[in-house]
Design a protein around this nucleic acid. Sequence first.
DNA 1: AGTCACGTCGTTTTT
DNA 2: CGACGTGACT
Length: 839
Amino acid sequence: MNFTMNKLSGILENVTISDSKQHFYLLEMQYFTEVLSHLMNDLLDKLNDMQQQAVLHDTGPLLILAGAGSGKTRVLTHRIAYLIRELGVSPYQIIALTFTNKAAGEMKERVASIVGEGAESVWVSTFHSSCVRILRRFIDTIGYDRAFTIYDSDDSKSLMKEVFKYLNIDSKQLKEKAVLAVISHAKDELVGPEVYAKDAPSDAINRKIAACYTEYQRRLKANNALDFDDLIFKTVELFQNNPDALEYYRRRFRYIMVDEYQDTNHAQFVLIKLLAHHVNDEGEIEKNLCVVGDDDQSIYRFRGADIRNILDFEDVYPNAVVIRLEQNYRSTGNILDAANNVIHNNIGRKDKTLWTANPTGEVTEVTCYENDNDEAAGVVSDIISRCDNEGYSYKDFAILYRTNAQSRAFEERLIYRNVPYRIIGGQNFYQRKEIKDMIAYLKVIDGSLDSLAVKRIINVPRRGIGLASIDRIDAYATEHDISFYEAMKNIEFIPQVARAKAAVNSFVSMIEVLRGKLAGGEYSIADLIDEILEATGYIDYLSEDDEPSKVEERIENINELISKMTAWADEQEDEDAAHDLKNFLDEIALVADIDGYSEDSDVVVLMTIHSAKGLEFPNVYLVGMEEGLFPSYMSINADNPADEIEEERRLCYVGITRAMQHLKMSYCKQRMMRGDIQFNKVSRFIKELPRNLIKMSGNQHSGRLSDTSFSSKSYSFENPRSDRSRPDSYASRSGSGGSYPASNTELPGIRSGGSSADASKLSDFLRSNPYAEKHKLPPAGLSAVADLGFGIGDTVRHYKFGEGVVTDIVKGGKDYEVTVNFPVGTKKMLASFAKLEKV
DNA sequence: AGTCACGTCGTTTTT
DNA sequence: CGACGTGACT
């Protein structure tokens, strides 16, 4: 509290008052300070010196270099609290920018818990939603309608397809995705179509891309739509073209905080710089910008993140104060050592070494498995045994991998062993067909000028409006410079569309009716879905189309959407349903997979290392540690492998530092990739770990760890036999293959047989089913309905055969073939038909 | 207009 | 392997 006291005395010294009075004031102040210190105790108490310094920093630019697990969120939230509570800053004048809604939500919550009343006025949100908020207010000044829609990557791709068609570009020569990637990068760099056309090298390919960019942007505008990158780009454009808008936000945001600063791209950098320039009433420039980041955790370069933003912060903001947070509170000493050893192989980083006062802990176990299925089996077994023997819960475990495709083997194994789990990533909830259809209806009802949404649903369910009709309506719309939907209303004047005329008319009147009901206040937005389903016969359409299990899943998803909308509408103070709808559409356009992750439910969680950034788990399995997978094939064969590999290494660093108590890594001798078998070598990142920090297990081949040289293109087909003859400096020292934990009966090397062969060996199958809690509706990101509700060894009831014991479960296609021993005999049946119930 | 069968291509990571 | 797109056929 000396700090506060000194500060207050300092203030007093600058005030001219008589000595006696000053003394009096000092006493007053002393009392005041005591009260204050009481208040501040909880603010500073649990913080170390560096963290306190960061919290107490008030004016001028501040760079907090926060290592993994060093408590940066705590510092950010406490700093906000300090500004409000101690410096009397109005919450309204603070903005905190994050990358995910999850991070924003957590920050909001934590600030609210410290500050209480008023915290809700702090503007805490993602870059993208902040920009939406700003643009909704001012975008009309740069030529867009304020009711713009937001395109997700699927929408962008559809639009690009139209562009390709229009420009007669063969999608075999040039990929939509590739063009979109180039455009995205250009936008990240604030390079518009004109500049791109002018500056990009004028080879044939680039001229085509430039043409696509121009046309793509023209069509976005015609649809009154912005893609993800536009949200940032257009906000910068707005600020550069509309000084009033800029001034408004400059005045408003006296304190700007940015989380994960190392992930910002150039456009975001410029945006921040524009906002951070603030002139106070005395005409002095204050840049109360506080950024937090860690260059070692910069893993989004592929998305345009520019690591220089953080490395050059002090050059851009010359009087910046730099505070380093290097004490890690999360991991054991050994885990941290491992992380430090890996990341030290990178050059071009701000050198720092994280340390911890935590116990040393155990060494990292590195296991070699025969193949990806064995790897999954080994990891899942390990999780089960540690839950049983060490008192962990499922939620204490995370399986982290480089690519989403790797989740599959683990998912199958988790189902097989009846372990509740949750996969983050893969297909986003809002990207599912049925959800996108519903959203498209909502967008059209909302009255958006977006033609993509209309085109998506105009013939879903089938109404007999084919491609030819759509093209003609489109042509009419372009010709008369009206939206696609407006053109539909004029169907009478489009001569070529004869047969579909009635269908189009009834579609339009259906939309109009729904629109009227919404405007009339008869319905909440959730009711609207019911109305749509009924008016369109959508459920029937689903039912005739897909296989039964899929249909059920889709209907469940729609129900989930309805509950999300209900929950959303309940939170809104707004009584106007039409308004609710607009806000809801904004909200869902910007959700990320990770936003749906909650620490609460007791499930094993699976995700990419990218998604795991910012999270922590007691036990982490870093799987697929193989050359070609991690670091990825793409990075090894890139034009600039050195840079790309460094990014992969940072990713590895992020993965390692997610672990609090136990870290386990694994790799496979062979793995199924794209339908054929790949033979990968152990990842170089494992070799970067000092020997005393790891324990090798599984029967890795000789030589596997001693040889880094492999041909650049194909390192598959490494012959295991010839390998074995090579000397092995590494594995032999650690006792090759010898050290399985005794509790683990299912480790690799025993045999790489199918699951039923494994099952017979697994006595622990007969243990009671730990999985009591039934899954509720699949939350966003859950890729499949995970459980059958029973596992091998459980007793189940069949409506006809009575009670029996499950002896085997085999996944076949979308269903499970369950073998059950009934009194009447052993029966094999499909889970979806048998309606088996656990007893 | 809609459906079925075959071929191609892809997997890095995502707001 | 599996998703998706194209093309021919009904």
